Amino acid sequence: MATEQLPATAVIRISQAVFDHAQFPDVREMSLTTSDFLIPAVKELPGLISFYAGVSPEGSVVNVSIWDSEEHAKQLDTLTAMVVDARQAAEKAGATFVRPIINYPIDWTI
């Protein structure tokens, strides 16, 4: 069942990182701090529908974004603010990224 609210080519991009739960305060602070430069950089990219970032005290970080196409979702793979600046800040705070990052075609929404 295809959704009528999103383009037929829309995708969900999920990026995850893990960390020792004792590092939660540092990783949460990193998430809040990197938002200062990530939000404007990501908002400039064409095709963005929405973006969510969260840090769990259980030791996991997730970035979930919705894009109008896989091509547009893949822009994050080369966005300097994401792949250099934010990654370095996350690793310094103790987070390790899970690879690969996967883009999922959207079948339906509520």
Rank of each mutant, 00 (worst) to 15 (best):
56 S>C: 06
89 A>C: 06
86 A>E: 06
94 G>N: 01
84 V>I: 10
58 E>G: 15
86 A>Q: 05
77 D>G: 08
68 D>A: 05
78 T>Y: 11
64 V>M: 13
90 A>L: 07
80 T>V: 14
58 E>P: 08
74 K>M: 08
64 V>A: 12
95 A>L: 03
56 S>K: 04
82 M>W: 12
91 E>M: 11
73 A>Y: 03
86 A>S: 13
86 A>Y: 01
79 L>V: 03
94 G>K: 03
90 A>D: 03
98 V>M: 10
72 H>N: 12
98 V>Y: 05
68 D>E: 13
92 K>V: 11
68 D>I: 00
72 H>W: 03
63 N>G: 15
84 V>F: 07
84 V>A: 08
82 M>E: 14
68 D>K: 04
71 E>F: 08
57 P>V: 07
74 K>L: 11
74 K>C: 08
91 E>K: 04
94 G>V: 02
93 A>T: 01
78 T>E: 14
86 A>K: 00
74 K>E: 12
94 G>E: 00
92 K>H: 13
79 L>Q: 02
96 T>P: 06
60 S>V: 15
70 E>S: 11
63 N>L: 15
70 E>N: 14
87 R>V: 12
62 V>R: 15
96 T>I: 10
97 F>R: 05
84 V>N: 10
71 E>W: 07
91 E>T: 02
72 H>Q: 08
82 M>H: 14
83 V>L: 05
83 V>E: 03
83 V>Q: 05
80 T>N: 10
88 Q>C: 09
79 L>N: 05
63 N>F: 15
79 L>H: 02
85 D>R: 11
62 V>D: 11
61 V>A: 06
59 G>Y: 02
62 V>L: 14
71 E>Q: 13
72 H>L: 05
64 V>N: 06
88 Q>R: 10
57 P>S: 13
83 V>A: 07
76 L>I: 03
66 I>M: 15
92 K>T: 14
89 A>N: 06
65 S>A: 09
86 A>H: 04
66 I>H: 14
70 E>D: 10
59 G>D: 02
60 S>K: 15
96 T>C: 10
80 T>R: 15
78 T>H: 13
88 Q>D: 08
84 V>T: 10
96 T>A: 13
96 T>F: 07
76 L>H: 04
68 D>Y: 02
61 V>S: 01
88 Q>A: 11
95 A>S: 06
94 G>F: 00
81 A>Q: 13
88 Q>L: 08
69 S>A: 06
87 R>I: 07
85 D>N: 14
90 A>P: 02
59 G>P: 04
66 I>Y: 15
90 A>Y: 01
64 V>R: 07
56 S>P: 05
76 L>G: 02
89 A>I: 00
68 D>H: 04
87 R>P: 06
82 M>D: 14
90 A>H: 00
97 F>D: 01
71 E>R: 12
94 G>H: 01
69 S>L: 00
88 Q>N: 11
